[in-house]
């Protein structure tokens, strides 16, 4: 195409071409470039988010093996300890049957005669204000009465104290008997740990099996 001979006509055409180009550039900018930049901004945000997530996830996964082993070890210790030392109820809420057997065994070993133990009750361990967490154990207290001398009492208390690292003598009352100075009337309250929730032991075992399965 030939441009017009007259300069003024050519200038008009140049101006028109300029305006047209600016319009096209604006259209390209607004439709293409700015949309792309907006998408790009979102993609950059998403990339940052994904990078952080992936880094965190990979760090966690990296630590998982060690944490899994530690979880299994911890759970195993908890299961072993609680199986041995946490008392269980028999036939509903009857803990007394189980502890009576234990107390009678300890009394026999100490060589003292006891009256049939009685139940004092179940109570909560107070919560820590600094580290409030749900306790899995409660205190079960039973009372045992007997009449014996101080040496026999010490033997019996030793039996109780060494029977479990969790058992605790929570009250002792010794009263002298004027008619028999060598024999005292004694009452002892003994506390054992019992489950706060009855199915905790099974839940812990299930958890242990699950984590062992995860390791394989």
């Amino acid at each position: 195409m030939k441009l017009p001979a007259a300069k003024s006509e050519r200038v008009k055409i140049y101006v028109l071409i300029g305006i047209g180009s600016a319009g096209v550039l604006y259209a390209v900018w607004s439709v293409g470039i700015s949309t792309m930049l907006e998408k790009q901004r979102k993609l950059v945000e998403r990339r940052t988010e994904l990078q952080e997530n992936v880094q965190k996830a990979e760090r966690k996964i990296g630590l998982m093996r060690g944490e899994l082993d530690e979880t299994i070890r911890t759970l195993q210790t908890i299961c072993d300890e609680t199986d041995k030392y946490v008392i269980r109820s028999t036939l509903g809420d009857n803990y007394l049957l189980g502890v009576t057997e234990k107390i009678e065994q300890m009394a026999r070993t100490a060589g003292v005669t006891i009256d049939p133990p009685t139940q004092v009750g179940i109570s909560d361990v107070p919560q820590s204000a600094q580290r409030p967490s749900k306790n899995i154990l409660k205190l079960y207290t039973a009372r045992v009465s007997l009449a014996c001398g101080l040496s026999e009492l010490v033997r019996f208390l030793r039996q109780i104290d060494t029977s479990s690292p969790y058992v605790c003598v929570s009250a002792i009352s010794i009263a002298g008997q004027p008619e028999s100075p060598e024999t005292h009337r004694i009452t002892i309250d003994i506390q054992w740990p019992s489950w706060a929730e009855k199915d905790t032991a099974e839940a812990l075992k299930r958890q242990l099996a699950e984590y062992r399965g995860m390791r394989q």
Partner: peptide
Amino acid sequence: ATQVRDAL
């Protein structure tokens, strides 16, 4: 891994 950490 989060579940394991929480359990631990």
